[in-house]
Design a protein around this nucleic acid. Structure first.
Lengths: 192, 192
DNA sequence: GGGCTATGTCATCAGTTGGTGACTTCTAGG
DNA sequence: CCTAGAAGTCACCAACTGATGACATAGCCC
């Protein structure tokens, strides 16, 4: 993808590890587990692919570590509760798609169909996604509401992935955004 | 996958073509575009992989033809409108996952991240998915409501794919099913 | 300054993929 | 019966993947 990752990195193992993890996270989010080659990641970092296997053990372990130290739902939960629906819906239906904001979703959506990646995703989706969301939601039925919200957000991201513009004109996209925002807010605040 | 496709098929080009298309559709739905090899499909049919390239031109064209003659949203729209939400939500949250019922969704979800497949999906999702759904919904804002419904259905299928049981116990799954059903029905019947 | 070790590279492997052209075999029509 | 062409197979290719062990090199400590 884009070359400049860490400015200088001369024989610094820790910095190289971090740079590999960052490059891997971006690649996995943009291309998915299967379509990301160790050589791609290595060339992003400016390093030999063999190094990745030596540092992380293999592609699966690298993916696992990306998820461990990776992005989570937290940044979606910043701000006031009443504004949650509008913030998320606007991000998903109106604003230009900034893939780096959706890395968690994209990694899940684009890698979940790969059996090896799916196992790791299953292992980590709870702590990176559902637990924080449920805690933020609060209430007895938080688990169920979190699932509905996750359906909406995943589905919206998926739609956006498939057809960038949703095949809608501007006013329809605003209507869609409103509908999503209201539905999201409904499950943020109310009982199911 | 499972061997028995067409009972007899001795040097019948048309039947072989159909058998290949069926096997390909199932494979693409179950494994996604990238993880499905021409050899896998061929061995399902009991035929040499070279035949597929000769009949369809290549993997991309095969995928395209699967989408052309493939499944669509229609079977989800059978039955009374009032029961739509319950039918779909039950299928997605309660009933055991019958992958053959979700082939359209699964093909989209598991192959959309593959650039070659994504182009074909973009080309066909409108006529196989949104147009029928919008027509069934009716009304001025049918396009927008169709998108919300698609978000919910795609997201629910995705969640089901990732963790078979949603990480919920039985009563929570029933609550989730109710919430999904009510939300779906809301966008089936009402204005946004 | 010299060596030792962490850091990184290179060559290579076995496996898989989609694809192609030459080959065989079955069957319909004369 | 017998042959022509359709239907299907086989052998192979080039490209790519993840992975491994042998090798090179840079920088720190004495």
């Amino acid at each position: 993808m884009s070359p400049p990752l860490s400015p200088v990195r001369t024989r610094n193992a820790a910095a190289t590890r971090t740079a590999i993890l960052e490059a891997a996270r971006r690649r996995f989010a943009h291309e998915g587990y299967d379509r990301t080659g160790l050589r791609d990641i290595a060339s992003d970092v400016g390093v030999d692919a063999a190094l990745i296997s030596r540092y992380f053990g293999g592609k699966e372990e690298l993916f696992e570590e990306v998820l461990t130290c990776g992005p989570n739902i937290a940044e979606f939960l910043e701000g006031d509760r009443e504004g949650f629906g509008d913030r998320v819906a606007t991000m998903m239906a109106i604003e230009p798609m900034r893939e780096e904001k959706f890395e968690l979703f994209l990694i899940m959506l684009r890698s979940a169909s790969s059996p090896k990646a799916a196992a790791a995703i299953r292992r980590h989706s709870s702590e990176a996604f559902f637990q924080p969301l449920e805690a933020w939601l609060g209430g007895e039925d938080a688990a169920v509401r979190a699932r509905v919200l996750s359906c909406l957000m995943m589905g919206a991201t998926m739609n956006r992935m498939i057809h960038e513009d949703y095949l809608l004109d501007d006013s329809q996209r605003r209507e869609l955004c409103d509908a999503l925002a209201r539905t999201l807010n409904h499950f943020v605040s109310s009982d199911v």
